[in-house]
C-alpha cells in the first residue's frame, strides 16, 4: 500500500458517500445514470469473487464488502424509494455493447482461462467503460447539479491516482499488470472533458454547464 493508492481508495469511498448524500438530501436521483450504477455493481461482484478464496487484509476485505453493498443499496434507492425521480429517456446509452464488449476483451486478454481470472478481467474492462452512460446523460442534459459533479470528480480522481500508484509500484516493486494499467489509462482519459469543465467552472463557483 502506498499513499497514492490509499488516497485513491478514499476518493472512491468518498465519491459513493457524496452520491448517497445527494440522494438523501434532495430525495432525488435526477441526473444519475442507473445503467452506470448497475454496471458498477456487476464490476464489484465479478471482481471481488476472491473474497471467498484469497484474503489480503482487513482493510481490503472491508472495502470490497463496502463497494458491493453500497452499489446494491444505490440501485435499490433508484428503483424503489426514488423511482419517480429517475428519467429513463435521458439514460439512453446502449449498455448491451459495453456488457458484450467487455466480455470479448476479457476472453481475448485474460491472463489465465479460469472462471475467477476471466471474470476479474471482465470486471476491469467493464469498469473501463462503465462511466459512459453517465457521461452521455451529462452530455444530453448539458448541465448538472454541483453535488453530482463532485461525485464525478471524486470518481475520476480515484482513477487518475491509480495511475500514479502504478508508476510508483513499477519503480519500487517492479510490479505491473498490463491489463489493469491499459484499462485504467483509457478509463481516466474518458474523464478529460469533464475535468476541464469541472476545473474551469465548478471550482470557480459557477454552474456545471457544457459549452
Amino acid at each position: 500500500m502506498n499513499i497514492f493508492r490509499l488516497v485513491a481508495d478514499l476518493m472512491h469511498l468518498g465519491s459513493i458517500l457524496i452520491l448517497l448524500l445527494k440522494m438523501f438530501t434532495s430525495r432525488s436521483c435526477a441526473g444519475i445514470s442507473f445503467k452506470t450504477q448497475a454496471l458498477y455493481l456487476i464490476v464489484f461482484v465479478t471482481r471481488y469473487l476472491d473474497l471467498f478464496t484469497h484474503f489480503v487484509s482487513v482493510y481490503n476485505t472491508f472495502m470490497k464488502i463496502f463497494f458491493i453493498s453500497s452499489a446494491g443499496y444505490i440501485l435499490y434507492m433508484m428503483r424503489v424509494p426514488l423511482k419517480d425521480t429517475y428519467n429513463k429517456h435521458l439514460d439512453a446509452f446502449r449498455w448491451e455493447f459495453l456488457l458484450g464488449g467487455a466480455g470479448v476483451l476479457a476472453l481475448v486478454f485474460t491472463h489465465k482461462y479460469t472462471v475467477i481470472e476471466t471474470l476479474w478481467t471482465y470486471s476491469i474492462f467493464l469498469e473501463m467503460m462503465a462511466i459512459l452512460p453517465q457521461l452521455l446523460q451529462l452530455q444530453r442534459t448539458g448541465e448538472a447539479e454541483t453535488i453530482t459533479t463532485h461525485y464525478l470528480f471524486a470518481l475520476g480522481a480515484y482513477r487518475a491516482l491509480y495511475i500514479v500508484n502504478w508508476i510508483y509500484r513499477y519503480e519500487t516493486e517492479h510490479h505491473v499488470d498490463a491489463i489493469s494499467t491499459m484499462a485504467g489509462i483509457v478509463q481516466t482519459a474518458l474523464y478529460c472533458d469533464f475535468f476541464y469543465v469541472y476545473f474551469t467552472r465548478v471550482l470557480k463557483g459557477k454552474r456545471f454547464k457544457l459549452p
Binding site: N60, H111, E117, H175, A178
Partner: peptide, 10 residues
C-alpha cells in the same frame, strides 16, 4: 506479474 501477482488492489 500478470496472473501470478497477488491481486491486492481494489
Amino acid at each position: 506479474m500478470g496472473a501470478d501477482a497477488p491481486k491486492d488492489e481494489l
